[in-house]
Amino acid sequence: MADIQVLVKELVNKYGTKREALIPILQGVVASERYLSSEAMIEIAKELDISAAEVYGTATFYSFLETVPRGKYVIRICRTIVCEMNGKKDVLKILEEILKIKVGETTMDKKFSLLETNCIGWCHQGPAMLINDEVYSQLTSDKVREIIQDYIRNK
């Protein structure tokens, strides 16, 4: 069995084969593979006995269920109003500078993807961003540099 089949099988064993298991399974694949490949979606469709189009249609509704390959660390910077007011644009510029990629892109070494996202619930400490599940708030240029350097060096 291919790795993806093993992974899907494990997730199915954990969550079941009913339709309501779909999103947890998709999340499990994204957590492990960083995105939903064509093979992964087909495998899930087989296990849940639904069409591949249904899997795709559901996945593309949700911004955290990626259907294109992403880096090991997905940076999601909040673009909603208060973060925007508090300097999100500058933070984004710094990120693009350090990572040498634009929003929506992934670094050559597949380590980082840079995305914008809607409100992540840290408006009182904006600008804020998520790196995978970790929150970083009250961002400044210096702080962002430090955070990313730390990821580059230590993770």
Partner: peptide, 26 residues
């Protein structure tokens, strides 16, 4: 615990239910 996947509209209760049922959060 059911973890969402990033969709504001799922705060609407029936969209949230659709989402829990493994569907698009419409």
């Amino acid at each position: 615990i059911f973890s969402g996947s990033g969709a504001y509209v799922c705060g609407e209760e029936t969209a949230l239910i659709e989402s829990m049922e493994g569907k698009r959060g419409e």
